[in-house]
Amino acid sequence: PEAADLRALARHLYEAYLKYFPLTKAKARAILSGKTGDNATFVIHDMKSLMEGEQFLNCRQIPIQEHHISGQGPTNAVELRFFHSCQSRSAEAVREVTEFAKSIPGFTDLDLNDQVTLLKYGVIEVLIIMMAPLMNKDGTLISYGQIFMTREFLKSLRKPFCQMMEPKFEFSVKFNTLELDDSDMALFLAVIILSGDRPGLLNVKPIEQLQETVLHALELQLKLNHPDSLQLFAKLLQKMTDLRQIVTDHVHLLQLLKKTEVDMCLHPLLQEIMKDLY
């Protein structure tokens, strides 16, 4: 493809990214470095501040069955309640990623079953990549950037909740050294979604063709946007391998939670995605 077409594709995906993802990397980094001018970020660092911060987390919360909770003691309830908030936000994020996927030129022309498969397998990878800009070595922004939750607090939760975020922090801290910006991210996310090797795809060829075009656009974008960063394109593609391992581990952890936590009900949309996944 012509360079001009690839630049147009990059612009289009960046615009879609800005349209569908409310918290950009630029905004997140401004909040994390304290450059937003206000001090509105609420910090959750222990159980007390978690309870105080819960009002922020109430976005479309799944009602939790009190009679189940009462048998478990207050601390367990807080963890489960927090986990439910995370699920609500994840389900909302899946909707955002779906809209972004639909904006990738050619995506909606693919077989509908293949669109489903690409989302089913791609969406957790995308969500994990999108966590990276929200994180630093000390913690992560949550709730659209209104809250900063410390890494130490997440590590202090009871097992297996404490094991859920640590691998994402380790990945994100390394990923952030690549210093991608939002316009790079938009192309990278599209590349992840358009993976032709997802299990059960019916018609791989058109997906690979779409991915190849986006890969060209990404390669050109990185050359122009990061002229001094050697091998950035190759380094970024290598991250896709690490990402698959993180997703596999994440899914296994969720399956474990489902077995061990009596009160855990997985959000129906997330259930759909997790079912028979790896």
């Binding site: 909606t108 079953n113 089913k120 759909e272």
Partner: peptide, 20 residues
């Protein structure tokens, strides 16, 4: 198709808020 009902819905609906 039944197995991925919500994903199908999300893909086929417009950007209007879907009841999650």
């Amino acid at each position: 198709k039944e197995k991925h009902k919500i994903l199908h819905q999300l893909l086929q609906n417009s950007t209007s808020p879907v009841d999650l």
